[in-house]
């Protein structure tokens, strides 16, 4: 199958750099998510891999083979578009068969393979329908079947789930994951939805302003964000800024925090996830945990969890607690917040 390597790619539109010296490798059979806010260059990277655009400098390799000057139609890439881009003038069958017809396969084989693909996406029997006669979820399945039926070297998905409502989206995520495992195709998935990226992918790459900020397995990215941006873009985080003092971080008010690893002299910032922060009971012993004291300003009830906003040094810290039915802290109460050193992650600002 296919390993895709992006090596030092820069893409310039006019005077604007959409991507700057970006290198990343997509492993064979992996499910890779490119995550970033709009304008971060994730879609540009996808279009470069697809062959709709060409890098201004740098190289893109499929299994070590240089793709320079090879346009999309010669790259063997399956692509699914945000709009699905189903051909409105063709039936579902003709849409799915398109890539096979173009490759001039015998009619009998086309029929078998289209039937297989439609079965894979659970749309058997829909072959005569027109795209406008399908629901949003069905259209998306057709688009997926169409993108994989000709066994492309890589499957590219451009925000494929963003047009669906939430319930449908969750269903499709499971479905997409199943199909990707069945087919075993290298898959690159562009999204701005961090939850989707974490749920679906084996590896996630976070992009910002045309650069790859961090990449790795979802758990590592969430637990050990390297930068303040990753920490706040992937989920929520409370950021503390201070100065390094003997491996610890001294906050402006004098509090000393013990981070996950000894702080180097240059370290100034650490991030703490709201759900890793506990509100201590009045006499509770924090043990080895970091402790700060603040005043609860607001309690937000969200069903399975409770969100607290705690005023500390003129800032608002977020604390999330599982709703266990017990009486928690009330607004106006002064509380002690505790978090373990391993959850106090040093990040670049």
């Amino acid at each position: 199958m296919t390993v895709i390597s992006v090596e030092g790619v820069t893409k310039t539109f006019g005077s604007h750099d959409a991507l700057t010296d970006l290198s990343v490798q997509f492993d064979d059979g992996g499910f890779y998510a490119l995550l970033g806010p709009s304008g971060s260059g994730k879609t540009t990277l996808l279009r470069l891999i697809a062959g709709f655009e060409f890098p201004t400098s740098g190289r893109i390799l499929f299994n070590g083979e240089h793709m320079e000057g090879l346009p999309a139609e010669k790259r063997d890439v399956g692509m699914m578009f945000q709009s699905y881009a189903l051909f409105p003038n063709m039936s579902v069958f003709d849409n799915v068969a398109f890539g096979l017809t173009v490759r001039k396969l015998p009619a009998a084989e086309i029929r078998t393979r289209v039937a297989e693909a439609l079965e894979l996406v659970r749309l058997t029997g829909y072959d005569k329908r027109r795209p406008h006669e399908l629901s949003g979820g069905q259209r998306q399945r057709v688009a997926l079947a169409r993108a994989i039926v000709f066994r492309p070297r890589v499957l590219l998905l451009d925000e494929p789930l963003s047009a669906l409502d939430k319930a449908l989206r969750l269903g499709m995520q499971v479905e997409l994951r199943r199909i990707q495992r069945d087919v075993g195709i290298t898959t690159i998935f562009v999204t701005h939805d961090q939850e989707e990226a974490l749920t679906l992918a084996d590896r996630v790459g976070v992009l910002r302003d045309g650069r790859l900020v961090q990449e790795g397995p979802p758990k590592q990215l969430y637990e050990r964000p390297a930068s303040a941006f990753t920490a706040t873009f992937l989920g929520e985080a409370n950021l503390f800024t201070g100065t390094a003092a003997e491996g610890r971080l001294a906050l402006p008010d004098g509090t000393l925090l013990t981070p996950d690893r000894p702080a180097a002299p240059a370290d100034t910032t650490c991030a703490v996830r709201p759900e890793r922060v506990d509100i201590l009971a009045p006499a509770e012993d924090p043990g080895a945990r970091n402790v700060i004291t603040g005043t609860v300003s607001e309690v937000i009830f969200a069903g399975t969890s409770l969100h607290y906003l705690v005023d500390w040094q003129g800032r608002s810290l977020k604390v999330t607690a599982t709703n266990r039915g017990a009486e928690g802290a009330a607004a106006g109460e002064t509380v002690r917040l505790a978090f373990a050193p391993r959850d106090t992650v040093l990040v670049t600002p």
């Binding site: 692509m79 578009f81 709009s83 881009a85």
Partner: peptide
């Protein structure tokens, strides 16, 4: 005719 349609066809190998 949306550009997406043309790009989709190209990704499937259409001349």
């Amino acid at each position: 005719v949306q550009d997406d349609l043309i790009e989709a066809a190209r990704s499937m190998g259409a001349s």
